[in-house]
Design a protein around this nucleic acid. Structure first.
Lengths: 212, 212
DNA sequence: TGCAACTGACTGACCGGTCAGTTATTAACA
DNA sequence: TGTTAATAACTGACCGGTCAGTCAGTTGCA
């Protein structure tokens, strides 16, 4: 814990600054966030921040790109880890994973920030759209196709199925973070994921009377 | 069309200012929005705005309260219009109505603004929570209870059911507004609502093998 | 000793809120 | 019905505070 008051660690600075920026941006919003506060939180002066990022906007961009990279990475891991011969089980696992991960406010901070700021930064929205949403949609679509081919699922509209699967996750995230009230019960993410899967997957399965 | 350059219409001003404020807030975000721009859009000078609202914050509050009132009002109308003896049909009607209404960017502007600003205005989030979300949840819960009592639905976790029903609507709204891409297909809200209802309600129904 | 990392005072633009002054409207009176 | 006084809606220049970005100077390190 003996730390000189000032250290020179150019290698670590960018990440430290981005961590601080994410915290301040989510607390204050991008427009109201002060670069000085970001600097202080990163243990630096404002001037030093500008050695690593040319502007406040650049920090937001870097932040979003970093977050998108992490999402894409974990999406890959999920697909790799899911049972390819059992689409239902794969969906359950993915739902569980996504809901559990997003239940950590630290992890969901970046997506929530995007949700908040996207309306004012169209190019940021576009970036997230192509690098996160589209990636997820493609993965889901593949799983669906497999499930339909194998008769596990009905041939429903894939866009509707997508919304039915990801929507509840978003709703849960919003309810437990933005619109959370001190009093209300905190659902275990795993249990909630299973309950959601129970409803949605049941709805995707063929019903007895159906001509498939 | 002969209009004097300045008119005195104190009756109409507050609403006109709120309309302008909603437009500017959704375009720029609350923090980045300039009161001057709101005034200009309302056809007034900045000073006049402050004759009707004590501060920029007050405009945001008034806006949210107005929007919440509208939502509560239309929720009442929905419940009144829905068939009380057929929960499934009632849900279909409600989903259709909500999705159609929220597909109008002008209508969804206020909810999207709340979604964007809520993280930085806890009291605003709390207000929306009690005056919009809770109202909706109570209505849904009543419908569920009716459906379960009558054997139309399984006795699933009501919180999960809630997320499963409202989540896809939110997802659809976000995809068609914030994350919309010029190229992609614009789904008819009615058709999408039916597709969603088809999946979710099917998932809520008892399955042949189930006990109870 | 030299250089790169870092500091923090400083600048200039911007914007919420104010207020002295202007103008539309109404009221009162001739 | 035209004239004028009184009122309140409205204007826009201005003030004070804030903050992104700069840069001359300082410090840690090889």
């Amino acid at each position: 814990m003996i730390r000189p008051k000032r250290q020179r660690r150019p290698e670590d600075r960018p990440d430290e600054i981005l961590d601080a920026a994410l915290a301040v941006f989510t607390e204050q919003g991008f427009a109201a966030a002060r670069v000085d506060d970001i600097a202080k939180r990163a243990g630096l002066s404002k001037g030093a921040v500008y050695l690593y990022f040319p502007s406040k906007d650049a920090m937001l961009n870097a932040l979003v790109e970093q977050s998108a990279g992490l999402v894409a990475q974990s999406a890959e891991r999920m697909v790799a880890a899911s049972a390819p011969d059992d689409p239902e089980q794969a969906f359950r696992a993915v739902l569980r994973m996504v809901l559990t991960v997003l239940s950590d406010p630290e992890v969901s901070a970046a997506p929530r920030l995007v949700l908040s700021e996207a309306p004012r930064f169209p190019e940021l929205a576009a970036y997230y759209r192509t690098h996160v949403i589209d990636i997820g949609q493609r993965a889901f679509r593949a799983l669906f196709a497999a499930g339909i081919a194998r008769g596990t699922f009905r041939a429903v509209d894939p866009d509707a199925a997508m919304r039915t699967l990801m929507g509840p996750v978003i709703a849960h995230m919003l309810l437990t973070t933005v619109f959370n009230r001190p009093g209300d019960p905190d659902h275990d993410p795993g249990v909630m994921a299973d309950a959601l899967a129970d409803i949605v997957l049941n709805g995707l399965k063929p019903r007895p009377g159906d001509a498939s």
